[in-house]
Simulated scan of single mutants.
Amino acid sequence: MKTLLVVHHSPSPGMHELLDAVVAGARDPVIEGVEVKVIPALAATVLDVLAADGYIFGTSANFGYMSGALKYFFDTTYYQCLGAVEARPYGLWVHGNNDTAGAVSSVNKIVKGLGLNRVADILESTGSVDKSDRERCYELGATVAAVMTL
């Protein structure tokens, strides 16, 4: 069984809706052989990262950057995981009030350094969360999980 680690910072109701949709997609009953482990960014550890076979990261866009919680996660795991997680699949969703570009850019730099392999389009959402956002998050979760079964 493969492990998909979902690391997120979901401080708002909108982020929780998106998280729920990502997890539901990753746990789609059609996808077999993937255990989904969901851990808030402030609680995820190096051991969680090393034990996982793939990742989905979720963050709010705060002041033109990823959330402080996701930044803390990367700060505390990066060097211990460097060279040990290369080529593992990942996905990313970002939600902001009106802009996500800085948050996406900051995460992209870190995952590039880790050598992770993006297997789904980055999901960017702004404003109120709607049905389309939830559907796209479901697809994100399902896509990353499905790729892990190949």
Rank of each mutant, 00 (worst) to 15 (best):
G33E: 09
A69C: 04
R134M: 07
A24K: 12
S67D: 01
A44N: 01
I110N: 04
Y79W: 15
A142Y: 11
E86N: 11
V107T: 07
D99S: 10
M66R: 05
A142Q: 15
D53Q: 11
R134V: 07
V147P: 03
F74K: 10
I110D: 12
D130K: 00
H16T: 13
E35K: 07
Y138G: 04
L123E: 14
K37M: 14
A52L: 03
F63G: 12
M148Y: 12
G58E: 06
G64E: 12
L18V: 01
G141S: 04
I39M: 02
E139S: 00
Y78S: 12
A44L: 05
L70R: 03
F73Q: 08
S10E: 01
S12A: 11
K131A: 15
P29A: 14
I39C: 06
S128N: 05
K112H: 05
I110P: 04
K112N: 06
N108M: 13
P29G: 04
E86H: 12
R88G: 11
P89N: 08
G115L: 01
L114G: 02
A43W: 09
H9D: 12
G14C: 05
N62I: 10
I56G: 02
H16F: 03
E139L: 10
N98D: 12
F57V: 03
V104E: 04
V7E: 11
G127M: 02
V7Q: 09
D99Y: 10
E86K: 13
L70M: 01
T143Q: 02
A145V: 14
L42T: 13
G83K: 08
N117A: 07
V6N: 08
S10Q: 03
L70S: 03
T77D: 06
A44S: 11
K2I: 13
G83L: 06
I31K: 05
Y138T: 01
V94S: 00
K37R: 15
Q80R: 06
R134Y: 09
V104M: 08
F63D: 10
I110V: 13
V111E: 02
P13F: 10
E135L: 05
M148D: 04
A21E: 00
Q80E: 14
G33I: 13
V144F: 00
G115A: 11
L47V: 10
C137S: 02
A43P: 02
M1G: 14
A21V: 09
D28A: 14
A21D: 06
S125P: 02
G96C: 07
Q80N: 06
A41K: 00
V49Y: 13
T149I: 13
F74C: 01
S106L: 06
L19C: 08
G68V: 02
D130C: 04
V104F: 01
